[in-house]
Each structure stands twice: as structure tokens, then as C-alpha cells.
Design a protein around this nucleic acid. Sequence first.
DNA 1: GCCGTTTTCGGCCCGACTGTTTTCAGTCG
Length: 573
Amino acid sequence: MKNELVAKILNEIADMLEMQAVQFKPAAYRRAARTIESLAEPIEDVYAKGKLEELPGVGAAIAKKVAEIIETGSLKYHQELKAKTPVDLEGLLAVEGIGPKTVSLLYKRVGVRSLDDLERAASQHKIREIKGLGPKTEENILSSIELAKRRKERVTLGTALPVAERICENLRAEARSRGATCTVEAAGSLRRMRESIGDIDILATTQNPSGLSDSFTRMSDVRKVLEKGETRSSVILTNNLQVDLRVVQEGSFGSALMYFTGSKDHNIAMRKLAIAKGLKLSEYGLFRGDQQVAGRTEDEVYAKLGLEYIPPELREDHGEVAAAQDHTLPEIVPYDAIRGDLQTHTKWSDGVNTIEEMAQAAKTMGYEYVAITDHYSTIPVVNGLNEHRLREQAKEIDKLNEKIDGIRILKGAEVDIAADGTPSADKAALRGLDVVVGSVHGTFKQTKKEMTQRLIAAMESGLVSIIGHPTSRKINKKNPCEMDFDELFDASKRTGTYLEINASPERLDLSDTNAGLAVKAGCKLTVNTDAHDTEELRNIRFGVAMARRAWVRKTDVINTMPLRELIKTLRKP
DNA sequence: GCCGTTTTCGGCCCGACTGTTTTCAGTCG
């Protein structure tokens, strides 16, 4: 999968053209880079099918360059541009306040090629001498160069969302205690529920902006205040997360929320649509001339533009604007549509809580059913079940089902899928279970072909009802195993095996893009938490979020079904 | 360099802020 490489080269071309003050081409290269970066399938496959030019933002010229990168691993045009300004672009651009033009200026005037060069030039006061720059710029460079050296890493949605919710709640509470009304919402990629987040954006309206920014910058876990003003404040928390707070007028809250939620490409698409209708859209509202025609709420803005409301998870410029215009947006699966969790663990294997505790917690969440799927495995660390212990567990579940009203505990197991695709339990052992999750827990380094065959063999064994965390990735830690998704999806449909969206925030596997491809191919999914304690059951929303981002409908997710229907749907081992 | 229910040529998303300037360019989101 060369998507990242291609996008990186195109982005660098954009930067270098911008350094040369070339007009419009940088934006064109960036657009193409974004398309390819967020593409679900490998760019090589698109190339092989001869469909590069069908990608939005990719025309004849860029298609030819992409082809060269795929064939040779590099691009002559890119090398030539690099030779003209041989600098560490990525490093220098990471410095806050420095863009391509300044990089070019610094290189030409004082020969800055790296972050070290830049630091030296700044401390020797060479930068203030450059026409167009000055002492302030020099100071700013010195104070932000450290941060640039430690590149900012994105955090998982599971880390960022609770932090943002806590901040919003605190700000609302403080405003209430001062008797002020105050609306506070998290925006940005967090609101779109992307799997990882760069920083947290919070939007607010209040009659007391200075009080709000005081509360914000004085939060207990603030490490550094970057800026503090009536309309914009910015802090770094002790966990290194950056949080930006913006305060807007009530009449602009909806348009501002839209604007700060993004994505950038969605915003651009929306503005173009506004222009086509003789209007102008900004964070201050939707305007006809000087007259604001909408802005207080998002619904209002979408409606005035003739669009259905677009849920934040869909705002990625993946065709949602056109669909909203044609009223063909799918009814994506609601967060409260899940009727039960089909992968959970208890003390019987490597979980923390008892079956009863898990069942009670699931009942509190309003579930109709919960499947207990402890490891059936020989991996020592997971304290796996064997045939005898599984029978004992089944007896306990039968008793609990008589004892507890209002929720049905399903009998299940999570089996390992061996390197050749054989499940770690045989038919006799699994007899009587309601659900069997099959997962890869070792021998991750196989060829694409081997891994594909392995999973297909597991599905064809007839013992497995669900493939758990299909690619075994861990966000920021472990790359997904390579596999041929077309073949995998075919086998999933053919054998009636369901594919999991594992809702654990460090997994989110299938990813949003892969889940989208799966459903497009006609597969059915299941969203499960893989909870190892009662608290983790609440991670379900992260998995549903991925499904929503993938345009998945309720009917595509089996555990939105009522119990009776689900039981009929699940294949018995 | 891309793209078209106003265009196959002539446009290309919007606004704030900062620091540098005598009216604006660069950066950021």
C-alpha cells in the first residue's frame, strides 16, 4: 500500500511550488494528496485498473506522476524540485508560524537547511536582519523550535474524547455557577469521531467571554497557556494534548460549529455549493450579500442550502454533500441501536469481572443480550478455557439466566485462528454455544496471500460465526496484517461469517474505511467491545462511530437485531 | 494542475491574526 508515500511526495511538491510562489498548483497537488491519503483501497490497485484519473483532484498530469511513483518508488520531478532547495522541509514546516515562503526566505538569505541551522541562526540574531522578518519572528522561532523537534503525535479517540467531555462539562458547570448561560461543544476531528485526534477544539458561546477563558486556562491539568483572549484561548495539558477554545456569538454558533468541525474538504465543498446558490458561507453564517440568512444552528445552515442534515461522522467530502442534496444519504446506524455485545471476557479467562457483573453492567446499558466469549486457547497469558471448563461455564450461565431478568447471557468463546486457519477448538468442544469469535492472536507476519487463506480457511471451517479484530492492528503501535479484502469479503458472504468492528479504542478494527468497503461488498458486520471489564463495555460508542463513518446502516449490523432474530442469524458451530 | 446544470478557458474557499509594513504577505485553521 503506497498511498502514504504518494501523498507525502505530492504534499512536498505542493510545499516546494509554494516556496517558488507558484499560483494554484500547490492547492491542486494538496487536493490530490488528500484524496489518495484517505483512499480506502491501495493506490496501486486503482492504478492497475487504469482508474487514477477518476479520483477527485487527479488529472492527466498528476496521474502520470502517481504512476511513476508506483512503478519506480520515486518521482523525477520531485527530485528536481528538491535539488533546487535542499532543505529539511518537513522539519522546518513543523515550526509554528513558519510556512513554505519563510523556509525559502531563510534558505536564500542565511542558508538554513535544518532545524539545527534554524536554531543557530535565531540565537545568533541573524533572522531579525532579514527583510520581511524581524525580532518577533526570531523570538517565536526560538520559543517553538523545541516543540517542532518533538513531533506532535496523534492520540486515540478513546483518549481524547473523555478529556474533551470533561472539559466541556466543567466549563458549563462554572458558567452555571456564575449564573451565565453558556453553550459548549467539542468540534474538530473529535466530533467527526476520527480514530485519532491531533488536538481538541472546543466551541462556546457565552455572555461572559473573559470568565470562560479564565476558567479554561486555569483548569487543573493545564501545563502551558499558549494564548488567552476573549475569542480564542489555547492550552497544552499535562498529557501533552493541545486544546483550543473559541468563543463565538450565539447567532453564529451553528455555522461556527460546522466550520470548526470540518473536515476542511467538507467545508470547501459546502462553500462552493453556497457560491453556486449566490450565497456565501463562513464561520459567521450563511449570507446573501450582507444579510445573514442562517447561522444559529447547523440544521438551519444545511436546510437553507437545500441539504439534508449531514451527521459529523460523514463530513469527509466522500460524496456526502451530493447525497444530502439528492436526499440519498443513508440512515446510518444510531449510537443506541446496539442491543447487545457479542465479544466480552470474564474472570474465567483474562477478564477482570465475573459473568454476573458483566451481565448486570450490560443490562444497565439497556442491552437485551450479552455474549460471554472467553478465550478458548492454549496461550498461557490469557488463562484460556478447555472443553471441561467451557462446560462448567455453561452451567453457570444457565443458572444466571434463570436468576437475572431482563438480559439474556449468550454462551460463546473466542478461539485462536492458527497459522493455517484451523480454529483452536473443535466441533465437539464448541457444541451448544450461541456464538464463536475467531481471531488471529499470533504469527502475524505472514504474506498477504497466507493471511488471506488463513482467514478464509477459518471461515470455511464452519465453526466460527464472527471474525474478531480482522486485521489485528493497534493504532500507532502495530500495522494491520495485509490481506486481500475482496477475497475476504467474498468468503464472508459465502460462508455467512460476520466481520467485527472491534470497538476497543486502540484497535477500531475493522477501520472505518475497511468497514465501508465490507458493507459495499455486501458483508454484514457486528460491533463489539472485546471488554475485559465492565467499564470497557462503554467503548461500544467508538465502534459504532466507525460504522457511522463507514456509512453503515442499522441493517448491516447484526447485533442491532432483537434476540430472537439474532439467534436465528448466528451460525451454530 | 484541475474542473465545469453559468465555463473546454478562466477561474480556483474564507477570515483572523501576526508581524511586518506605510497597505500587506504569510500562516493557520
